[in-house]
Design a protein around this nucleic acid. Structure first.
Length: 597
RNA sequence: GCGCCAGUAGCUCAGUUGGAUAGAGCAUGUGACUUCUAAUCACAGGGCCGAGGGUUCGAAUCCUUCCUGGCGCGCCA
């Protein structure tokens, strides 16, 4: 053990991890000069936050990784390293523990200073990115022929949270809602619209329930040969630009898009009409995609279809797998459209990074898409493309989520049910609350429940959708997060204080206060990782930890009734920062907060 | 057949890319509401990390072989 002090006083939230790691690199250089380590060695070590408080706040395994090259005992190496470390005000003391870990204990006054800095910063210590990228994010992207259903939830919600996070960090985010607004299925829909209009029925009424309209069109298509013929004619007419047909199509899209927009608005999803850039937008470009693939020497005709074969994708019996870009009847496929979209995002939108929040089952498609686009020169060499795949939404029975009647669950109905359930629970807790407030709280809590349940799970695995889990108001749920926030808010309300009006020192004498403080200064680090990996569940995990830490603080450390004025002011400031980070963090998840509930 | 993903407490899930005694929530048991909202807090029990083998100071994590489940694999999107 060794005590050190002095020197470095950070002016902003300084990633202490980075600092420690830099110092360790210097120590390695010194050890090389002393010929204790071979000159060419570049050890792979980590500096990590510890899980167990008895191991300090940070730990490094450097000594362990050096044991072999230095041909020495790890604990002895650790002692050598510690002796070479400079004094540092952020670190109170350093210990060598276990097989040779070096543990760093953060200094409370340093921690307190970090909290002060975060309080003074409108961004709560979240660093603005040094080199902003233009990031195109493809998410939600429903099929406009049908109503949005539970399957669209994950893409929409996870994509949106990632978009907000990237934006907050300072990136230029361009949202792209690649809606399915083109293709053969529109033939039968237009045919049914036409038929209804001839019968003198009001189209807007007919389209009020898109799902049943689609079902009926499908039934008619299957049952009536005349209807099917008309549907096919309409597809041809649509694709050849027939005006009356296009007018009908636009009318349908307008209804379907406004239905989507209503859901986005209800869900608090930051997608608007400006983000809509559907399949039809690329229609005119598709022949050019084919000819450009041909020019690049990638096109092969096989059994009448035009394909791109790539060596790295093998299908059955080891033969290369084709990516079909044009059918033998001349029609194009989604691969063609995706290539066109990719090129548009690169050339017109100037994307430096393109993210796709699409079902993980399409991963082969995206691997092929990216590979072909690169070979064809549709992408700049340093443009990143990532398929942010997600798993299937499952029901309680472990099978893909269905309604009680076995049908696909409409998103609108799921939201209705969540709001109703949330409202009932809130009403049970607050019998005297008036109807208007109950409605509002039920709405916010219902939406928060759905979104938090989805966002808090790892993107890539399947996800079990269960109202009972998400709306039980206990533990790691949306309502818990909102409740934690209202408790902070109630302190300020009770005291009649404005959040911003408190000053004074930050005192971290209680272990709980220290824990809360160390949670509070990690916000920036977490957001960076969410943005890198498209994983909002890390933000959920962090906010839950913060909320839990606050709840414990709230219970055990009286704020308004603190024993002294300086302590009261210190705690009020911890409350203030907690409130701001919870509010900001939830807002990045697309979840609103309530002042009381 | 080939390929991708998953398998962690009774249930739902984490696990910081190889670190120390594998963590949360629900459920179960115990304790705490004249106190800033008990939608909470404190504490307890609960594990062959699907199985075997390997790599090394050290493996839930990497390699390998199996088992189980899901999903892809030529003209739908």
């Amino acid at each position: 053990m060794r005590c050190i002090s002095v020197s470095f006083i950070p002016q902003e939230i300084y990633p202490v991890k980075t600092y420690v790691s830099e110092q360790l690199h210097k120590v390695i250089e010194t050890l090389k000069q002393q010929q204790f380590l071979p000159e060419e060695l570049s050890p792979q070590f980590t500096v990590e936050r510890t899980r167990d408080k008895s191991h300090g706040d940070l730990a490094t395994n450097l000594a362990l990784t050096l044991a072999k090259p230095a041909r020495s005992n790890p604990r002895q190496i650790a002692e050598k390293i510690v002796a070479l470390l400079p004094g540092e005000s952020a670190i109170k003391r350093v210990e060598i523990a276990g097989p040779g870990f070096i543990n760093f204990f953060l200094d409370e006054s340093w921690l307190a200073q970090q909290v002060k800095n975060a309080l003074a910063d409108p961004r709560m210590g979240v660093v603005r990115i040094q080199q902003p990228q233009t990031v195109v994010i493809d998410y939600s992207s429903p099929n406009l022929a049908k109503e949005m259903h539970v399957g669209h939830l994950r893409s929409t919600i996870i994509g949106d949270a990632t978009a907000r996070t990237l934006e907050f960090l300072g990136h230029r985010v361009i949202r792209q809602n690649h809606v399915g607004d083109w293709g053969t299925q529109f033939g039968m829909l237009l045919a049914l619209m036409e038929e209804r209009r001839q019968q003198g029925r009001e189209i807007s009424m007919e389209l009020a329930d898109l799902e049943s309209f689609y079902r009926e069109a499908k039934q008619r298509f299957d049952a009536s040969p005349e209807f099917a013929v008309r549907a096919r004619q309409l597809v041809v007419a649509l694709q050849s630009g027939d005006e009356t047909c296009l007018a009908l199509w636009r009318e349908f899209l307008a209804v379907s898009l406004s239905h989507c927009q209503k859901l986005y608005d209800r869900l608090g999803v930051s997608l608007g009409p400006d983000a809509v850039c559907g399949e039809s937008a690329y229609n005119d470009d598709l022949p050019r995609v084919i000819s450009d693939l041909d020019k690049a020497g990638l096109l092969t005709e096989d059994q009448g279809a035009r394909c791109v074969f790539l060596e790295e994708f093998k299908g059955q019996d080891g033969t290369p797998l084709p990516m079909i870009v044009q059918k033998k009847d001349g029609g194009y496929l989604y691969a063609t459209t995706d290539l066109a979209a990719l090129r548009y995002r690169q050339n017109q939108l100037k994307a430096e990074r393109i993210l796709y929040f699409v079902d993980v089952r399409q991963s082969l498609h995206f691997q092929q898409l990216f590979a072909v686009a690169r070979k064809a020169g549709f992408l700049a060499a340093d443009t990143q493309t990532e398929h942010m795949g997600f798993g299937t939404v499952m029901g309680d029975d472990g099978k893909p989520f269905k309604t009680r009647t076995g049908g696909v669950a409409k998103l609108a109905e799921l939201i209705d049910e969540a709001e109703t359930r949330a409202r009932a629970l809130v009403a049970g807790k607050n019998p005297q609350m008036d109807t208007a407030e109950l409605d509002e709280i039920g709405r916010v809590v219902g939406i928060a429940s759905i979104k938090y349940a989805d966002l808090s799970k790892n993107r890539s695995s399947d996800y079990l959708f269960s109202f009972d889990h998400m709306i039980s108001f206990e533990g790691d749920t949306g309502p818990y997060m909102l409740y934690a926030y209202t408790r902070v808010a109630s302190i300020f309300r009770k005291a009649g204080l404005d959040e911003k009006s408190i000053t004074g020192e930050i005192l971290l004498n209680e272990e709980i206060e220290r824990e809360l403080a160390s949670s509070l200064i990690r916000f920036s680090e977490i957001l960076t990782r969410v943005a890198e990996r498209g994983t909002p569940h890390l933000l959920c995990g962090y906010l839950y930890e913060l909320a839990a830490s606050f709840s414990s603080f709230y219970k055990n450390c009286p704020v308004l009734g603190a024993e002294s004025e300086p302590l009261r002011n210190s705690r009020l400031q911890l409350c203030q920062l907690t409130a701001r980070i919870l509010r900001q963090g939830l807002s990045l998840l697309g979840i609103g907060t309530l002042e009381r509930m």
